[in-house]
Design a protein around this nucleic acid. Sequence first.
DNA 1: CTGACTGCAAAACATTTGCAGCATA
DNA 2: TATGCTGCAAATGTTTTGCAGTCAG
Lengths: 163, 163
Amino acid sequence: MSRKVGYLSSVADLNEEKRVFAEFLKRRGLKTTRERTALFEEIFSTHHHFDAEDLVSRMRERGKKVSRATVYRTLDLLHDCGLVGRVRLNEEKYRYERQMQGEHHDHLICTACGRIIEFVEPKIEVLQEEICARYAFQPTSHSHQIRGICVSCKNAPPVPAPE
Amino acid sequence: MSRKVGYLSSVADLNEEKRVFAEFLKRRGLKTTRERTALFEEIFSTHHHFDAEDLVSRMRERGKKVSRATVYRTLDLLHDCGLVGRVRLNEEKYRYERQMQGEHHDHLICTACGRIIEFVEPKIEVLQEEICARYAFQPTSHSHQIRGICVSCKNAPPVPAPE
DNA sequence: CTGACTGCAAAACATTTGCAGCATA
DNA sequence: TATGCTGCAAATGTTTTGCAGTCAG
């Protein structure tokens, strides 16, 4: 199931991201520390959504000790250099995810079970460009969220009540 | 510039919203209190975005005393019954807005000056229906956000640096 | 009357920050 | 060696909650 993006579909290509991060740090006069590298490795070892707390526990499980503060500081950096996307899905906290080049996905959020379904719809990107042009707006990122009820919940036994 | 929706374009039509809210409360066995009514009136007196804190001060200015806790509790109710939209625009807090029937707008968010530009694009709504059908997802609300730089900021003096 | 509401202050959370010691370049 | 980093704990800012008194139906 390969994609047209190509140069980012296998693990080896992490080199590209590594280079981007390294250059970003250098340009800002920042350092490549053990903690930043460890966090980078962990984050780019999967393709899933995660939040700051997830990352803290994953690091702990791996025996890599990184404080919560550093996790937040590093996520800021990775977000600033565009390697990690940061979204608020109407929750109380940020949710992060690897930023894949050339492919953007949006989210269906089930308000009943909390499930998040990702979808890709190129036509949305096109529309978006039209809209930005209309307002002479220079887009850097976007997120489209649709909240509602997913199939499983729709077929599930009727909810006990408004709760 | 009237719209096909019609029955919601003038102030008088607040009756419709009032009815919705009243029925919602009744169905849940809740009461129509002075505070809830006052908050409803205040919220529906404008069409602008606001956050919980804005509402607290607006109420205070009007001399209506409502505690912050009640503001939050009432916003939850209005959101639950669909009269008020609630969005996270990548800020630290919720932003609320009147939910207009038949017309949905989305947001351009300037990351330089914080300005929020609303836009309406019916084609997005159509696309969305397609997507939901694709996943047998039953949508209840949605929000599309595009982050970037607005015209004024683009023409503004170059930013001092990464800050 | 009774169950729901309100205000208050305290609690809960996620995220940020000040500071003293540590480690990259 | 000089900055920039890290961890810790305290601070922040928003939203939630427990409780005792109050009120709508």
